[in-house]
Design a protein around this nucleic acid. Structure first.
Lengths: 157, 157
DNA sequence: GGAATATTACTCGGATACTTTCTGTCCGAGTCTACCAGG
DNA sequence: CCTGGTAGACTCGGACAGAAAGTATCCGAGTAATATTCC
């Protein structure tokens, strides 16, 4: 899985805490974790294209969550970065097997594809069940005062 | 996910049906699906390295399942091809955050890493619960006579 | 003093190189089979 | 006819290129704030 997923998730968390006031530019988000700003920007663009964050240009511009953190799931972020195609792709191998009708569409008929797909659906289900707000709450519970500290850092720096 | 996983899974299925008699060379397996033999061989090597299949050199040589098909799970095949590293890797991003203790080991403490890991564990669990024998039985149930046809093809060709 | 305007600095967004991984190909080492010669 | 040896062909195994995706960087378009000028 792409490293950008990790960056995007952490940034969403920070946006949830710090972005309630205004927009946060890529520069600040990158500086917070000491990441290459331009490349992080690319990931944020992907989030914007999927409607997870909204962007503003010019001074005082930047990114902010486009929806409440409770309405953004981990799956939303993952698919925004990685794309919608499933990890295991049935390439219709059985079409080339001897004695096959060769009519394609095996991703719904091939037993292997079904098994792999059902496992992946379970994974997606797990990710869809957890929102950015859930994660934020858990982190705040573990480290009291963290949301305030993060917000202060982004407002001041 | 690598395309080799699909090839490996289909080959394991064929080995379960056709390999009860003797070893099957890469050439035959490749010809069955019209795949590049040398590259398929590479995937089978990975399976051999993980002890899923055993290889024999020379004439009448080839690959056969090293264990009963019921003792080989889909997860075994996937990890043999893709490696043991988890898809989502925590790069200890929080170490670089301001005010972090910087002691590493976040893959067990970072809330995001935990959430991603638990989802992936669920995926692995799903794959581990299904064996090659299960898949074979389901395929045979759907297409009666399939195991015999496959075995015949491999014995004759 | 207030308002309109030109300037300036800042931000996103996409186009452009570089690196790593995946895909595909090739050739050599080892081994089993089959044939052949000798007893 | 049986046994031992030898040649041959077949298979795996790893080393070697090419393609695709991921990673990183740079520069231009647009925008909002700011300073300036005029009324």
């Amino acid at each position: 899985m792409s490293e950008g997923v990790e960056w995007a998730l952490h940034c969403c968390l920070n946006l949830a805490w710090a972005g309630s006031a205004g927009a946060i530019p890529t520069t600040k988000l990158a500086k917070y974790y000491d990441l290459p700003a331009s490349y992080l920007n690319k990931q944020l663009q992907a989030l914007a294209k999927e409607g997870l964050v909204s962007s503003t240009s010019g001074p005082r511009g930047g990114f902010r969550l486009a929806r409440p953190a409770a309405d953004i799931s981990l799956l939303d972020v993952v698919t925004a970065i990685e794309g919608r195609t499933e990890a295991f792709q049935c390439r219709d191998l059985l079409d080339r097997a001897p004695g096959s009708p060769g009519t394609g569409g095996w991703q719904h008929h091939c037993v292997i594809a079904q098994a792999m797909s059902s496992a992946e659906m379970e994974w997606r289900h797990q990710l869809a069940a957890q929102s950015i707000a859930d994660i934020a709450a858990r982190a705040a519970d573990r480290t009291p005062g963290l949301p305030e500290r993060v917000r202060d850092w982004f407002e001041q720096a």
